[in-house]
Design a binder for these strands. Structure first.
Length: 768
DNA sequence: CTCTCTACTTAGTAAATCCAGT
DNA sequence: ACTGGATTTACTAAGTAGAGAG
């Protein structure tokens, strides 16, 4: 059970997976509690013996280069020399690292100073609320990661210097500004001032189309195409083996987009029917191109990459209040056929090419406006607009031709802006811990509210205290809380795929006949990912739901009258800034925390001995991660190679087991002679028949193999990444790594490490 | 209020890269 | 050293939700 920090109530705070209501994620089949999971095959040796020789092994799999990176991320001092305070107007002044005296003020602080009268107070909470001990702990905790001595320093800390003109720093290691030591996230507000100075290199445009001249056939006859026509034909040819290309909607939309282009030059013989189109020659050409690319030598590839990097270098970084920050998506989206998810009515439409004239640049008032690149079409282009809006974080934007929605160019995930916002998100979610008891109590009462008919509205914000939701709103909140559903904003089904969330659930998505107090929901959620789970729910909710679906048609809304805005207004009564999505973050993170707190019980010594500490621990971490992913219904397509891979593993396991048997039989006596045999150099020999190895090594290998197999199968269609990136408070993971001496790069690959720099110095006993 | 606009987070998949087994 | 599968990153679609307009 999670210990409760500064909380009054002893309300049920258990994460969903620990409550009576069964974990929502998976299908009806009972989810194996982690407890049931990894049990190593019987280890014939005393664990201790096996454990002994393990550590070296484990160290080996820690690439030192990476470890170095980790260290950098954690300990990197703020670059003492900030870039020049006022770069001169040279269009790409962002690139070269410039020396300067000016100390960079953290953006949000500036923001606060600028607008918040509360700024003196803010100063006091310099240090993150939840980290009890002070600045020096930083160094301490860092050293946790160095316990395993960095023995062989393969590479000197050589920087991958001067990558392009970009200033020569690898992602995430040297922007220097430790904003997270100054702020606690609370100052990150929409509409607030985000920067004082902003300078950047604009955007990169995709290359113009180069015609290949390969024939297109219609009804058996070659139809010559202009470059413009060929471009679109080629887009389709490139996709013709995908599922999209086989869908009627896609074909129809594609033809509707393409035909008008064709008309311009068509004489009398219109290309009309999709079925008569033959793109095979073009497709063959694309294949060839791909093959040619593949055949390039290593040097050629490196050369090409170098050129590309050089061309983009000026866009890679932005200079914000004298901090150098990485830009995320500075490449303008190329034209193409729209790939909407699910049954999207617009799939196959032509997404138009974006020109400088379509783009609005946001840049500091005094800063140079980024140069409009030469697109190579012989025309002089200009930006559509240039603005200086310091209340937003986008550097450029344009309107997308498919849905008319705005696309933004923003900073990368490792930037301080994203980091602050991330920190604020998790602090908000932690704050919910303090209020969740009241909220749950309130919606429980709400469900029993007799004036069901009266109105389904949550409560008007005019009502100041004790908001009491009407039953429907109460049930909706219950589902958002316990099943981690999204709120479900309204959608336009003519223009978008038909997907729903909590408030937009329809009668046809709800099944109440699976048993008493069992709720089955089956619907398409975000990205048209199916949610299909049966959950034990409280009788009050069950009863209420029955009444909500009564006398309604399948297509009717279950929660008519309940809408996201009202729910969010209602949430505001309990906590500032509380909205429906916070519940997902809260539930995800608290689940991860709770699961990881069981590590000692769940990862047996035997297991650790057999598989190695880090391996066993990470296997458990992944199980915890998986539980969160299932809670949030994060899915992925089963990898095509899955069945194959499993079969292979089974085969391998069998082989190993047979070998083990042999080994035992053969070496029964002497094998054990020396208690700790000096580790022979890894017998990596070519050829098949493995030289006999110590029994314990073989056993270890088998258990690892089996653990891997189990893991792979259980996660074949669970996407772990999404929760790791967006829902799990990284400090939970970092603290766990510190407690169990797991290298942080095991759960967090390079980019996540960079993204979560702000979380690295957390105390080992951090609690979500 | 309701509806639309805006900005930002969250999401799965395609492409690129890595890496382990031959 | 190669290669194919696994892992990681890039890409961009699809959500949420606050703010502003009507």
């Amino acid at each position: 059970m999670v210990r409760i920090r500064d909380d009054d109530s002893s309300e049920d705070e258990a994460p969903p997976s620990e409550r009576t209501s069964q974990p929502p994620a998976a299908a009806p089949e009972a989810e194996p509690e982690p407890a049931a999971a990894p049990e190593p095959a019987a280890a014939p040796l005393p664990p201790a013996a096996a454990a002994e020789d393990d550590s070296s092994d484990e160290d080996d799999d820690v690439p030192l280069s990476k470890r170095k990176a980790v260290e950098n991320v954690i300990t990197a001092k703020p670059q003492p020399a900030a870039p020049s305070p006022k770069p001169k107007a040279n269009g790409n002044g962002v690139a070269p690292p410039k020396p300067a005296a000016a100390k960079a003020p953290a953006a949000p602080k500036a923001a606060k100073a600028a607008k918040a009268p509360a700024s003196p107070k803010a100063k006091e909470k310099k240090k993150p609320k939840y980290s009890e001990s002070s600045a020096d702990d930083d160094a301490d905790s860092d050293s946790d990661y160095d316990k395993k001595p960095a023995k062989k320093q393969k590479k000197a800390p050589a920087k991958p210097s001067a990558k392009g003109g970009g200033g020569g720093d690898d992602a995430g290691t040297s922007y220097g500004d430790r904003w997270y030591e100054e702020v606690d996230g609370s100052e990150w507000k929409r509409g607030g001032v985000k920067w004082k100075t902003l300078e950047h290199g604009g955007v990169m445009f995709p290359p113009l189309y180069t015609p290949h001249g390969k024939p297109f056939y219609y009804d058996g006859a070659a139809v010559p195409l202009t470059a413009e026509q060929e471009e679109v034909a080629t887009m389709f040819a490139a996709m013709r083996e995908t599922d999209y290309a086989k869908k009627e909607t896609f074909q129809k939309n594609f033809m509707e987009a393409w035909r008008p282009l064709l008309k311009k030059t068509d004489e009398g013989k219109p290309v009309k029917k999709f079925d008569k189109c033959d793109f095979s020659a073009i497709a063959a050409h694309l294949e060839e191109e791909k093959a040619r690319k593949k055949e390039m030598t290593k040097e050629q590839k490196a050369e090409a990459k170098k050129e590309k990097d050089a061309a983009e270098a000026h866009c890679v970084f932005a200079l914000i209040d004298s901090r150098k920050e990485k830009v995320g998506n500075f490449r303008v989206e190329p034209p193409g056929l729209f790939r909407g998810r699910g049954e999207h009515p617009k799939m196959g439409k032509l997404k138009a090419r974006i020109w400088p004239e379509d783009i609005t640049i946001n840049v500091g008032e005094g800063a140079p406006v980024p140069a409009v690149p030469d697109l190579g079409d012989g025309k002089r282009h200009r930006w559509g607009d240039v603005v200086h809006d310091n209340t937003v974080t986008w550097l450029a934007k344009w309107m997308d031709s498919i849905n008319g929605d705005v696309k933004y160019v923003m900073l990368a995930a490792n930037s301080s802006w994203k980091g602050m916002s991330d920190l604020a998100k998790y602090e908000k979610a932690r704050e919910l811990k303090k209020h969740i008891g009241r909220i749950r109590a309130d919606y429980m009462k709400g469900m029993k509210n007799p004036d069901m008919e009266a109105q389904q509205k949550a409560s008007s914000s005019a009502r100041r205290r004790a908001p009491r939701p009407a039953p429907p709103a109460a049930v909706a909140v219950y589902l958002i809380d316990r099943l981690a559903l999204r709120v479900g904003n309204e959608k336009n089904t003519d223009e978008e795929a038909d997907t729903v969330g909590c408030t937009s659930l329809r009668v046809e998505h709800v099944f109440l006949d699976e048993g008493d107090n069992k709720l089955r929901l089956k619907f398409l959620g975000k990205d048209s990912i199916e949610y299909d789970a049966t959950t034990d729910i409280i009788p009050e909710a069950y009863k209420a739901l029955k009444s909500f679906v009564k006398k309604k048609k399948p297509g009717d809304q279950v929660f008519d009258q309940v809408n996201p805005t009202e729910l969010n207004d209602y949430f505001k009564h309990f906590m500032e800034g509380l909205s429906a999505k916070v519940f997902r973050t809260y539930n995800a993170s608290i689940t991860l925390d709770a699961e990881l707190r069981k590590t000692e019980q769940m990862v047996s010594a035997r297991q650790r001995a057999a598989e190695g500490d880090v391996v066993a621990l990470m296997a458990y971490y992944n199980i915890a991660n998986k539980n969160v992913a299932e809670l949030c219904n994060h899915q992925r397509a089963t990898p095509a190679s899955h069945a194959n891979a499993i079969a292979k593993m089974d085969e391998k396991i069998e082989t190993l087991k047979a070998e083990l048997k042999e080994l035992k039989k053969a070496g029964s006596g002497k094998e054990r002679a020396s208690p700790s045999p000096p580790r022979p150099p890894r017998p990596t020999r070519p050829g098949g028949t493995p030289r006999p190895r110590p029994v314990e090594a073989m056993t270890k290998r088998i258990s690892k193999m089996e653990a891997d197999r189990r893991n792979k199968d259980e996660t074949k269609n669970v996407s772990l990444g999404t929760s790791k990136i967006n829902y799990n408070d990284p400090r939970v993971t970092v603290a766990w790594c510190k407690r169990f001496e797991v290298p942080i790069h095991r759960p967090f690959p390079k980019t996540l490490l960079a993204k979560f720099t702000w979380a690295m110095s957390v105390e080992p006993d951090y609690e979500f």
